[in-house]
Amino acid sequence: MNEFDDVVIDIQKLSFSRGDRSIYDEVDIKIPRGKITGIMGPSGTGKTTLLRLIGGQLKPDAGSILVDDENIPELNRSDLFSVRERMGMLFQSGALFTDISVFENVAFPIRVHTDLSDDMIRDVVLMKLQAVGLRGAHNLMPSELSGGMARRVALARAIALDPDIVMYDEPFTGQDPIAMGVLVNLIRRLNNSLGHTSIIVSHDIQETLGIADYIHIIADSKVIASGTPEELRQDDSPQVKQFMHGLPDGPVPFHYPAGDYETDLLRGQG
């Protein structure tokens, strides 16, 4: 693993388990500042969990998560909320507030955290909506938007306060190719123009490889590979290969752990 000059999130020896199932086992992840970092892995490996751990919505069993030298799990409620002001998160479902309009959704974090006048807020919101191409939709209610548009509005909301870190939870799932292309471009462009750090959690290999500067692959509660997209394409460890090329079976098994097939079938006749 190569070292970065400027690390914004430094995760050290992170362990987390849900019930008896271990999600992370002493994992170390470093996220470079100002870059787009992809976190990839098969479904069910707890990629979303990682974002929630960084956001402090879940507490790890052990280990530390340093965001600019502040250890998230040890912060108290109010410090945590102030760290979160510097983070924006795009949820898988968009998570727009369904009872207020698109405009109010984007204005919400601004109203909460600043004392800007209504005129100023209006300008900022329209700028953010313009950035995602939905300025014309500011009067609509979230229920009137398509899935792709809802996600773009959510993105506008996530960047409303110009956060240092923007986290994307599965931004590409369930999008048609056009909407996906729009999002990929948007994430890249926003990252370049606003200069924040982006973390993308995804299992859409091609899109993520296309825009990420750096990628971690997670499987079996470990980081199995890290590197630039180019390095990972050339990686020849079987696990990475299986994931990168989407092979159905390999070190990451196709079958959920089960007993012997034959005995299982015969048992029914007993």
Partner: peptide, 11 residues
């Protein structure tokens, strides 16, 4: 629909 989580993340 993650609106509660989203509120938390907004602070």
């Amino acid at each position: 629909t993650e609106q509660l989580s989203s509120l938390e993340m907004i602070g």
